[in-house]
Design a protein around this nucleic acid. Structure first.
Length: 320
DNA sequence: AAACAGTGCAACCGCTCTGAC
DNA sequence: TGTCAGAGCGGTTGCACTGTT
């Protein structure tokens, strides 16, 4: 049994809409209003099913549709709303004037999702996922920084870190080989973090002393600066937001006890965090201004994403 | 210049959910 | 309570465009 189809498929046109069809649909709705979508095609003289007309109107022909590229602020708003609302595209679209749920969904799947993955952020949970992080892009930096790589040992998959340590001497001689090996390792090493046995601090010291005994302090310091910058830029700080609070428990290390410049980076972000109220009011009132490069967006996404917090007492029913 | 691969996006499909009757 | 239309969603397809070989 089941419901009757929304239209008789026989003889009805599918595929891209022609300008003539668009005109017919627009003129009809402007005069009559959409009314009953099932009867609209016949009344408007269209060989389309009602659902197709409805989708065409709501996703493309509506006069309040905003065309063109998403602004940086719109993207940020989408990410922040998605972290709260999930795949409720219509709810997200309701807070982005002129944007449709379908458009946002497509944009999410083709742009934002990929970007989050590239930055090591799970696009579903919005948790940081260091097993997803494109470590090769970090290590490919001309300012590759070992010292902070070593500090990263509390966060990184130990196997990935071990490989990186093995490759570091190679990096100065042949960066291409390093990058190639890292990429190979990323392909192989896709298991979730919490399935990886953690290296204890003393074990890590052994790795350091056994595998890179001749590393100079200056080189370590140089490398430390790069990773410090990369991490602070990408929001990898210890002051985790509510939706990314799993990491400290998983690593079992008190980051705040590390009296390092790395920690200072955390604190600077922390103070920054406190100075920004990024609750829902701020999300919904995000100003829309255009213009950013892809790379700038990458960095800003992270820096702002992890600042976003769900206000206490927020009633989600208000948004649904 | 042509062939090919990758990407982005409009549009569709099938299904579920919701509210009106 | 059941039926129906509309809305919404995830997934997918097809095509145009772009970059690469």
């Amino acid at each position: 049994m089941g419901r009757l189809p929304c239209c008789d498929k026989n003889g009805l046109k599918k595929g891209p809409w022609t300008p003539e069809e668009d005109t017919k649909l627009i003129q009809y709705i402007q005069m009559q209003g959409p009314g009953n979508w099932r009867t609209l095609p016949k009344n408007a003289g269209l060989q389309r099913c009602g659902k197709s007309c409805r989708l065409r109107w709501t996703n493309y022909l509506r006069p309040d549709i905003k065309r063109g590229r998403f602004s940086f602020e719109e993207e940020e708003t989408i990410i922040q709303l998605h972290s709260v609302l999930g795949n409720k595209w219509s709810a997200i679209a309701a807070r982005l004037p002129g944007r449709t749920d379908n458009e946002i969904k497509n944009y999410w799947n083709t742009h934002i999702r990929k970007r989050l993955l590239r930055m090591g952020i799970d696009p579903v949970t919005h948790d940081r996922r260091l097993d997803l992080l494109d470590i090769s892009s970090l290590l490919n930096s001309p300012q590759l920084n070992l010292s902070n790589l070593l500090r990263l040992q509390t966060l990184l998959n130990p196997e990935a870190l071990r490989l990186a340590l093995n490759l570091l001497p190679t990096h100065t001689e042949n960066p291409d080989i390093l990058l190639q090996k890292l990429q190979e390792n990323q392909l192989l090493n896709s298991q979730p973090q919490n399935q990886v046995p953690m290296i204890q601090p003393n074990q890590f010291d052994n790795i350091i002393t056994q595998q890179i005994p001749n590393m100079s302090q200056s080189l370590q310091d140089d490398m430390g600066q790069v990773f410090q910058n990369n991490l602070s830029d990408q929001g990898l700080n210890s002051n985790l937001p509510s939706f990314a609070s799993g990491i400290p428990d998983q690593i079992g290390v008190d980051l705040s006890s590390d009296n390092s410049s790395f920690d200072q980076s955390f604190n600077s972000n922390s103070s920054n965090n406190n100075s920004h109220n990024l609750g829902f009011d701020s999300v919904l009132s995000t100003p829309l201004i255009n213009g950013s490069t892809e790379d700038e967006r990458d960095q800003s996404f992270c820096s702002n994403l992890f600042k976003f917090e769900i206000p206490e007492g927020l009633d989600f029913d208000d948004f649904m």
